[in-house]
Write a protein that binds this DNA or RNA. Structure first.
Lengths: 233, 233
DNA sequence: TCAATAAATTGATATTTCACAACTTTTTGA
DNA sequence: TCAAAAAGTTGTGAAATATCAATTTATTGA
């Protein structure tokens, strides 16, 4: 199998430019992180973090794209996020029962940096600003989950799908025209509907000329109309 | 109107026995909290914390019972928790955009202690153990929200209602036989269904002899059967 | 390159859930 | 205490969504 050349970070130094939360650390503290961390490459489909497994490390994507999802009942998944480089994961689990509370698996060729949980906890105990940043980080995730709860429980399928398209455009691909790296099945897992419903409602949006679909490609034609559908539920 | 005698705490001292998170504070630190805090009584129905309003204070219930809920679309509510004394609220908002991200309103006569956000933030910056406890606190809430997301999105009504009954029995009333302080409407808002559906499914559970209903009273007759319904979804 | 596999689409049908209306029971406040 | 309001119940029909099956299209690995 052709593995790509490892793009492993040589040191944590430049991470404080890329991963916001590390910019609060001194050179000395970055050295502590650097000591035990290691980087691993993942093929598409491979599991980076497994829900239920021991949460021994924080994980940060350094290359590629992955999906973060909850494993529910009957193998049903709920995707919470499409993950791109420089966000830190370890989630609630590292601070509670030492088990990961979600899974992350690679969508593309992906590199991840694994940092022992203890090293990060040590920083929390010794660096006030870093501890506060972790609280803020957790709070932002918390409020996003509130929005998700409302979208998923109170909106009907067109509203939920509009939310997902807007999320992909604004937060993932950062463009109103993008080529999906996820399947219809995964769009369904983001918006809590079956892949058949996802297909149908995408087509409805295309028929109303609100979006343009070309296989994996999606282009938002009428942003306001899409936002309107998101609001109306 | 007959107001009950205020049961205001005289000092924060005894709070470190009641509110777990304050047990990490020294006498000196408790004095800081004590200085600016104040207590307010609320009648049933009154709003203690309003979603969207400026998040200037942390709030802790000291007496009574309240509901914590998200205000969604078309006035629809999603109740996240039935709140009892000695838990701390301020939620994600105090650490992000300084707006509350949920509402809390009194179900019974309720007393709440308001603590200026700055005083708590000060403690976070000066007391490592307290900061870590806040991270753990936020992480526990985070993982509860994951469970809620799964229950609400992947289970059908009987499973969701079973989850709510088990939640009420285990976490709120701490007994398998209890008298509800909430309405059928609010049971619906906890389990994301209409009050009519809540009524019907409660009656189904009673017909199957899994629970016994007497107006506001609920008794769990077959705990295992109820857990089974919760699992099967 | 091509068969095998996975993904996407489409239609028909079944299930779940809601909305509305009518009615009964309980609670509340003057 | 009693009338008004709120909460709870029940039935019916409609809407939303899932399931299943069949088919087409795209992707992948030998």
């Amino acid at each position: 199998m052709d593995y790509p050349k490892s793009q492993a970070c040589k040191t944590c130094d430049n991470c404080n430019e890329k991963s916001h939360i590390f910019s609060l650390l001194s050179q000395e503290e970055l050295l502590v992180l650097n000591k035990d961390r290691f980087e691993v490459m993942f093929e598409p489909g491979q599991v980076i973090i497994k829900q239920g497994a021991p949460a021994t490390h924080f994980v940060s994507l350094t290359m590629g794209m992955a999906k973060l999802y909850l494993e529910g009942f009957d193998r049903k998944k709920l995707i919470l996020e499409i993950v791109k480089p420089w966000k830190l994961f370890g989630g609630p689990g590292v601070f509670t029962d030492m088990r990961y509370h979600y899974s992350i698996s690679a969508l593309t060729e992906t590199a991840s940096c694994f940092i022992p949980a203890e090293n990060v906890k040590h920083l929390i105990r010794t660096n006030h600003a870093f501890a506060e940043a972790m609280i803020v980080h957790g709070s932002i995730n918390g409020s996003k989950n509130f929005e998700r709860l409302l979208s998923l429980t109170q909106k009907q399928m067109p509203g939920r799908l509009a939310d997902v398209i807007l999320y992909l455009a604004n937060e993932v691909y950062q463009s109103n025209s993008f080529s999906l790296s996820i399947t219809r099945q995964e769009i369904g897992e983001l918006s809590n509907m079956t892949k058949e419903s996802a297909t149908r409602i995408l087509k409805d949006l295309e028929n109303e000329q609100i979006i343009k679909i070309d296989g994996k490609g999606i282009e938002i034609l009428k942003l306001e109309a899409l936002k309107d559908i998101s609001l109306r539920g």
